[in-house]
């Protein structure tokens, strides 16, 4: 049995220091007051523009968010007298704010920066425009605070479809993944798949930074797929699109025969098609895995094999009921022999 309860992991905070380290490259952040306040925590994935708080209205001030000073905030501060500026900044500094980001390479007027340094609040500067920065930071924080889970299984990109193989220990998940790699498909993760929820209904699977594209094959040991099969055999991340559960063949269990009714599995609240695949000697799971991927592709492009088959059958049944029977043969050929063609 594989564990169907996916334990959700979610960061409760990131430190300002981590935000800066990541933001140096992503949002071109520059620290204006050294490493002050780097151990402060960012607990909210939203950002805030503190225009009203600077003006004195702090009733609903969401101070726990990253505070972004755009042109408006800077122009507003510039329009005030030096005393008023200090008062305005103190309005927001009475709260424990995580950090401040100033856009458009603007600078704080006078010595206002010292007020932030005194209160141990990091102030960053970026050349980006406010709208762009807000977009980038939201994307970054969304990812940081996204729900995650670890699945014991193998994720392989088969014809562009992310197939996640799960099943009990030793059923042969890694061997199937290896076989698929051998046939030209790409391994994302073996044994430990780290799944992150993106937006509302997207699951992205990656491998772990320790295990990378290493794989364990029973009786052989640990192999390095990237070095053995080359760069084409791996990829860093892939959307999880179909879950394939490998099961020991059980004659009492009922497996789908038509594929008309889809089963689903919920991972982090996202419903993913689930295919239960009984395995037994002589069954080529690799080829079936390819077919699963192709079938999913067909469905994605609007063609459902099972439904089409059913439609065809229904048409024939209708025709049969309404026309005069020509013969009593129950099974008909798809076509008559072409004349004089006996090939």
């Amino acid at each position: 049995m594989f564990n169907k309860e996916f334990k959700e992991i979610q960061k409760t905070h990131i430190t300002v220091g981590f935000f800066y380290e990541s933001g140096k490259e992503l949002f071109k952040l520059k620290s204006l007051n050294g490493e002050v306040g780097f151990d402060r925590k960012i607990t909210d994935k939203n950002i805030h523009r503190p225009g009203l708080a600077l003006a004195g209205y702090v009733e609903l001030f969401t101070y726990n968010r990253i505070q972004v000073f755009g042109n408006t905030e800077i122009k507003y501060l510039q329009s005030l007298s030096p005393e008023e500026r200090i008062k305005s900044i103190k309005n927001i500094l009475q709260f424990e704010i995580p950090c401040v980001v100033i856009t458009n390479d603007n600078l704080l007027p006078d010595n206002l920066l010292d007020l932030f340094t005194e209160k141990q609040v990091a102030v960053f500067q970026t050349p980006l425009e406010t709208t762009k920065l807000v977009y980038f930071i939201s994307d970054f924080l969304d990812d940081q605070f996204a729900p995650q889970t670890v699945v014991h299984g193998d994720l392989v990109d088969v014809y562009g479809i992310g197939l996640l193989f799960v099943g009990r220990s030793g059923i042969g998940k890694s061997e199937i993944a290896l076989d698929l790699v051998e046939r030209g498909h790409r391994l994302v993760a073996d044994d430990v798949v780290l799944i992150t929820k993106k937006g509302e209904n997207i699951l992205i699977g990656t491998c772990n930074s320790v295990t990378k594209h290493f794989m364990e094959i029973r009786g052989l040991g640990i192999i390095d797929v990237k070095n053995m099969f080359g760069i084409r055999a791996i990829r860093y991340q892939k959307r999880v699109e179909v879950v394939v559960e490998l099961l020991d063949w059980d004659p009492k269990e009922e497996y789908t025969r038509t594929g008309l009714d889809e089963e689903h599995i919920s991972i982090l609240g996202v419903e993913i098609p689930l295919i239960k695949l009984p395995i037994f000697p002589g069954k080529n799971i690799t080829v079936i895995a390819e077919v699963i991927a192709l079938n999913h592709l067909l469905k994605h492009y609007g063609y459902d094999s099972a439904k089409e088959f059913n439609k065809n059958l229904e048409t024939i049944l209708r025709q049969k009921a309404s026309t005069i029977k020509t013969a009593d043969i129950p099974i008909e050929r798809i076509t008559r022999y072409f004349e004089h063609d006996f090939e």
Binding site: N3, K7, H152, S169, D191, V192, N208, F214, E216, I222
Partner: peptide
């Protein structure tokens, strides 16, 4: 908070 299968060597090492 991260849980892995203890029968998987890659899992344990991760």
């Amino acid at each position: 908070g991260v849980e892995v299968n203890g029968k998987s060597i890659i899992g344990v090492m991760s």
